[in-house]
Write a protein that binds this DNA or RNA. Structure first.
Lengths: 336, 336
DNA sequence: TTGTATGCGTTATCAG
DNA sequence: CTGATAACGCATACAA
């Protein structure tokens, strides 16, 4: 195995010109059946595969597609990615996965690297709702926003009903008789987080139950800090009788905090299902989204967009679903 | 924003030749300070960045590095990936993440796509210990094996002490008085799984405790089937008094199975820590590996290898650590 | 239906 | 220290 075979090698072996090989590969023009057979045999024999760099340089774009997610270690993102990958694999597309690490400073180079590599399209969960550099990309490369609204952009998008799901969860806790309900979220600046908070607020408002400032914690960044925030609220004045957390990571922290030395179990609901939720005691009632389905939907949007670059942008909103397991149905417990 | 700036544009603006620009960018040859200043200004003004495709075509390799993991939805793999990414980001390398989906049929095209893209190096967790196509790669591109031994390959590798960890866990259960210990694993064919099984067997043999065939389940593929297998063993004859699972996914299933309608809690230990393990009741005793550290170690090996392609291959083995939380210290419970 | 010639943007050779 | 020019492998006008 010396040098990888090139188009020229195949052409020589098959006794035709490079152009003919190119035709067979790309299936654009018509080729005589006999010629095609010869060419295919030569390709097979040499194990030829087109050099992506050369092709990319020539045509100005790569056939790979890029994905920019915030954090691959987040189970939600990881499952989303698996859904995308599954579809892209089926479609024969090479998927380049990159992460933006929750910050524009990291996201921007990631996106630009992909853009620079002239990927055919990108799937992205933008950190911030407004970015000039993203906007510049829009006319040049198909973008699909995942889990973020294309606020000032005209791109395809896949969202879930964050507000509705959070409202349903809050109503669920209210129906169980709770009034001091805490809300824990890992970054209120995120679109999903703020919509979930909005759902929480609208349910509380509709029930005419006041939201207590000290029971809203928007400053948690990881499992440990969510646990700390939860413990602080429980140990402080006017502790909550129920807690709702707005994403899986916060939920794990919240639960860890709740499980430590409480006189009685505090009701709780998690936005986002997670592995192990049904094995905890009590099993955790959750607002379930289907990240795999989101990934598939996003991939489909991009694949169709690559087929037809024109046409109006399309927006998919997937529903959420409450899974009642026990933790959300507990009555308020009097800690005094 | 029309066309991205090219070397030629920069050269014209700076009033020098293309080659000089190239020199400045790559810092290889020496350039007069005054010239360099002019060039840098021009690069800045035009927002020029070298076209990776053109560079790759010319020099024959891409400066990106590739990662092939089995399943991005597996938390262990996801965390490993995060560790790698962190280091690669620091080193200014573009990381292309791909998955092999636990099967050579998927892994092979993934690896070959990366190879075809002439990545500078690859980090890989090969599915099968022997693959001719991987072997062919070795002389051409630096490979780092992660979590798999480079059996017939001369490549760098990062492993954890799977056998030692499993042995320690088994000894832990034996010390608590268990003799009917079950072993649940999600694919015994995997290197890590078989080494963990080996550790289990050697501890049992050393204690002269027989391994019961019906208490070894090597056929589980996901959380649901692990739960099913666990329930079957508990419901069958000679049920286990303790269960050990060989990876996080199996553990979640095992725990789900154990938590359903048992007269008393069955002792269990999980190889691999997982989010929520300490919030379960009882909290789960685990054999902890540090996937982030593994990722960092692997990335470092590759980065150093890229600096110095020659030199003997290096092998890093990271220790495991038992985290005692409760589930592994339970005594045998008599179910009769 | 097939072939020839040119250029994509970069780096390397070699000369100045 | 700097520049002209060829070449990487492929696709595409254009020609036959």
């Amino acid at each position: 195995m010396s040098r990888p075979a090139t188009l020229r090698d195949v052409a020589e072996l098959a006794g035709v010109s490079m152009k003919t090989i190119s035709r067979v590969i790309n299936g654009s023009d018509s080729v005589a059946p006999a010629t095609e057979l010869k060419v295919r045999a030569a390709i097979e024999e040499l194990g030829f595969r087109p050099n992506p760099a050369a092709r990319s340089l020539r045509v100005g774009h790569d056939d790979a597609v890029g994905l920019v997610i915030e954090n691959i270690a987040d189970p939600f993102m990881a499952t989303l990615t698996a859904g995308i990958e599954q579809r892209m694999r089926q479609a024969g597309k090479f998927l380049i996965i990159t992460t933006g690490g929750y910050s524009p400073e990291n996201e921007r180079p990631a996106v630009q690297s992909l853009a620079h590599r002239r990927v055919a399209g990108m799937l992205i969960t933008p950190t911030s709702p407004s970015h000039a550099y993203l906007e510049r990309l829009v006319p040049h490369i198909p973008l699909v926003f995942i889990d973020r609204p294309p606020v000032q952009f005209d791109t395809d998008s896949v969202l879930v009903d964050n507000e509705g799901g959070a409202r349903a969860a809050t109503e669920h806790l209210l129906a169980a008789g709770h009034r001091r309900i805490a809300f824990v979220v890992n970054r209120i600046g995120l679109f999903t987080s703020s919509l979930r908070y909005q759902g929480f607020r609208s349910a509380m408002a509709a029930a005419e139950v006041p939201i207590l400032d000290h029971l809203v914690r928007t400053d948690v960044t990881d499992v440990a800090s969510a646990a700390r925030a939860t413990r602080q609220m429980l140990a402080g004045p006017e502790p909550p009788t129920a807690v709702m957390s707005a994403n899986a990571l916060s939920s794990l922290g919240m639960i860890r905090g709740l499980h430590q030395d409480q006189p009685c179990v505090i009701a709780h609901v998690s936005f986002d299902d997670f592995d192990g939720a049904e094995s905890l005691s009590p099993p955790v009632t959750v607002v379930h989204q289907d990240p795999t389905a989101m990934g598939r939907a996003a991939a489909d949007l991009l694949l169709q967009r690559l087929e037809d670059p024109t046409g109006p942008s399309r927006h998919v909103t997937l529903p959420t679903r409450m899974i009642v397991r026990g933790s959300g149905e507990l009555p308020p417990c009097d800690r005094s």
